[in-house]
Design a protein around this nucleic acid. Structure first.
Lengths: 114, 114
DNA sequence: TTGGTATATAACTGTAAAGTTATATTGTGG
DNA sequence: CCACAATATAACTTTACAGTTATATACCAA
């Protein structure tokens, strides 16, 4: 009730806020990849890659499709749409504000009477 | 050389990926606030608020201006511009891809010969 | 100067998450 | 069925960070 954040899912950012996982997202930007491919390019162990992929998956950032022995992982659009929406609306609000904190403080001074 | 992420600063996301700090960003969306105001609205201790503000500050997300006894914190535009740029370019790349992983796997099947 | 308010910092504790190693599961081809 | 390859999971260690308490710093007013 008090800790409610309007649009943005904080845990999604947490999932992205780790270098290996961000690297995975960048790798998947252009093409789906298997766990083995990802682990190999990341130069981490297979369980380690699987663990990061699970975090990304739990946050809806990636989805996987079994294909024979392998699992192809790819990015999902939705969370990035949500992130884009949040950032854009934040920017709009910010740009409505004063350009510098100095201006605002000066404004505070002037309005001290009311 | 291998772990290079193009545009996005991962640590900035880490700074945002904590509920209290995200709440601070939301609070500052419309107006600069003092540490005391932030701590009070967040219902956390003053040192705790200061600590989160320091993280945000270290990542360039907020800036502060001393005014007498107090410090006004406000959001900075730049990191959100960078984030917006990253998300947008990622989305563009993604939307060039197949709509579903199924399609992609079918594509793999067809192209197995080459 | 003294007292009070606002903020920062240092030192510490607890917990969650990164990273590792070993093992289980699932699927494929012979 | 068996042997092998790809991935997932479990158990564990270690590190990083949230959160707390106590103290230091800076500013103002009387």
């Amino acid at each position: 009730m008090s800790g409610e954040i309007p649009g943005m899912d904080v845990s999604m950012l947490g999932a992205l806020a780790e270098p290996n996982r961000m690297a995975i997202v960048e790798m998947l930007r252009h093409e789906p990849l298997t766990v083995g491919e990802i682990a190999s390019r990341l130069e981490v162990s297979q369980p380690h890659a699987s663990k990061h992929l699970k975090v990304l998956s739990n946050n809806g950032i990636v989805e996987s499709k079994p294909e024979a022995n392998r699992r192809y992982y790819k990015l999902r659009l939705e969370p990035f749409h949500a992130l884009n929406y949040w950032v854009t609306s934040l920017q709009k609000d910010m740009e409505r504000r004063f350009d510098s904190l100095d201006d605002y403080v000066q404004e505070l001074q002037k309005n001290k009477n009311e």
